[in-house]
């Protein structure tokens, strides 16, 4: 029978990880649905008893979101203006039962192309911090995400938490998703838009990320460049701005429908954005 451990201290968890390469379990909301049919026995490292890895806090110039912080924790955190997209995503990921257990870091490690949590974190330039017996390393979320269900996490590493830069200029952000119904549904597409504003009311810097339109969520650099120096105007959007997206046809929608939906959600996000 497979082993199960629930250490209370990080060093013990990292030792186990180095020796046995177990599956890491936190909220479990992605782990169990994938294993309804009794799967092969696998060792489980349950990290839910590790101390000091739950509380979301401001640390200098960034927000620290440790690996046991749930979407409900994020939703209840009093985030500064500019991080609204995170609060909005926290309210739209699953139902409250899921939000009460699912963690942000688990959402990233699961690395579903349709993960709602990824576009806001990608647009906010989040960094991940990985820990192993060899030490810690940080990398951008963009570098961490390799493809569907694939990340740069090594088997002996665990994702310790996220660093999300706090806004330095007056900012607004928005999260938008489209599903076949309003709630509790896997998204057809979802996106996040982050805009920093200058004193003249113009966007000084824009960041846009789109999910469920390719193997992993993508930023749209050409659109970001087009928005810089402009008012948030839906008419600025061009088809060519969506070139990084490579959607597929599947049971939730066709590739053409997805691109059309992204364009519509982006226009609505821009039209609704009031300068900070």
């Amino acid at each position: 029978m497979a082993g199960y451990s629930r250490p209370t201290d990080l060093a013990a968890a990292l030792s186990l990880l180095a020796e046995r390469r177990p599956v890491i379990l936190a909220g479990g909301t992605d782990h169990f649905p994938a294993r309804v049919a009794a799967g092969p026995a696998e060792d489980i490292l349950d990290i839910t008893a590790l101390g000091g890895l739950r509380a979301i806090e401001r640390r200098g110039d960034h927000l620290w979101v440790p690996c046991l912080a749930t979407w409900a924790d994020l939703g209840a955190a009093n985030l500064p203006a500019g991080l609204e997209a995170l609060t909005q995503a926290a309210a739209q990921i699953g139902g409250v039962q899921i939000q009460n257990t699912a963690t942000l870091c688990g959402n990233l490690c699961n690395a579903s192309p349709a993960a709602d949590g990824i576009p806001p974190l990608l647009a906010l330039d989040a960094e991940v911090e990985l820990a192993s017996l060899a030490g810690r390393r940080r990398m951008s979320l963009d570098a961490f995400l390799l493809g569907p269900r694939q990340t740069a996490r090594r088997p002996e590493e665990m994702l310790l938490g996220l660093h999300i830069p706090l806004p330095v200029a007056p900012s607004r952000s928005v999260f938008a998703k489209l599903g076949a119904r309003r709630y509790l549904v896997i998204s057809i597409v979802m996106l996040a838009l982050v805009a920093e504003f200058g004193a003249d009311g113009m966007i000084s810097r824009a960041r846009v990320a789109v999910g469920a339109c390719g193997p992993r969520a993508r930023r749209l650099p050409a659109l970001e460049a087009a928005l810089a120096g402009a008012r948030p105007d839906p008419a600025l959007l061009r088809r060519a701005h969506l070139a990084p997206l490579l959607p597929i046809d599947d049971m939730r929608g066709t590739a053409a429908y997805r691109l059309d939906a992204v364009a519509t959600l982006l226009r609505r996000a821009l039209a609704g954005m009031v300068p900070a």
Binding site: L25, T29, V96, Q97, T101, L184
Partner: peptide, 22 residues
């Protein structure tokens, strides 16, 4: 598999899907 909510219980006062918890 966490999609329907029929297994909802309160765990330490908070609602969760009991099918998604060891």
């Amino acid at each position: 598999r966490g999609q329907c909510g029929a297994c909802t219980i309160l765990l330490d006062g908070r609602r969760i899907n009991s099918c998604l918890a060891l």
